[in-house]
Simulated assay, not measured.
Amino acid sequence: MKDFFYGIQDLFVDVLFAPFDYLRELELTSWFTANTLSWFFMLIGFVAFMYWMMQLAKYNANNEEDKSVTAHSYL
Rank of each mutant, 00 (worst) to 15 (best):
L37V: 07
D21H: 03
L43W: 13
F4R: 00
S38L: 02
F46W: 10
F49S: 02
K58S: 10
Y51N: 06
A57I: 08
D14A: 11
F46E: 09
A48F: 00
A18P: 10
W52M: 08
Y22P: 06
L75T: 01
F12G: 01
T36L: 04
A48R: 04
G45L: 01
S73W: 14
L11D: 01
S68D: 06
K58C: 01
A18C: 13
Y74F: 10
F4D: 14
I44L: 14
N63R: 08
N62P: 02
L26V: 01
N62H: 10
A48D: 04
K67H: 11
Q55K: 15
W31G: 10
Y74E: 15
N62G: 07
H72Y: 07
F4P: 13
Y74P: 10
N62W: 08
T33H: 05
K2V: 12
Y22K: 06
S68R: 15
E64C: 07
L37D: 06
F40D: 03
V13L: 15
D66P: 04
L16R: 09
M1W: 11
S68P: 04
Y51I: 15
F5Y: 03
Y51M: 11
T36N: 11
V47E: 08
E64Q: 15
L23K: 01
P19R: 05
F20R: 08
D10W: 14
N60R: 13
V69W: 09
F32K: 08
V15W: 14
Y22H: 05
Y6W: 02
T70C: 01
M1A: 01
F46Q: 06
Y22G: 02
D14M: 15
N60M: 07
T70P: 00
K58L: 09
I44P: 14
A71T: 06
E27K: 03
V69Q: 13
L43I: 06
E65R: 02
Y22M: 07
F4S: 12
L43H: 10
M1G: 03
F41W: 08
L75K: 12
M42P: 03
I8K: 12
D10H: 14
E25N: 09
A61N: 04
M53Q: 06
T33W: 00
D66G: 06
S38Q: 09
L11I: 02
G45W: 00
Y6N: 15
E25D: 08
Y51S: 13
L26T: 03
G7M: 04
F46I: 13
A48W: 00
F40T: 04
Y6H: 13
L75E: 05
F12P: 00
L23A: 03
R24V: 06
K2N: 10
Y51F: 06
S73Y: 11
Q55M: 12
I44Q: 15
L28D: 09
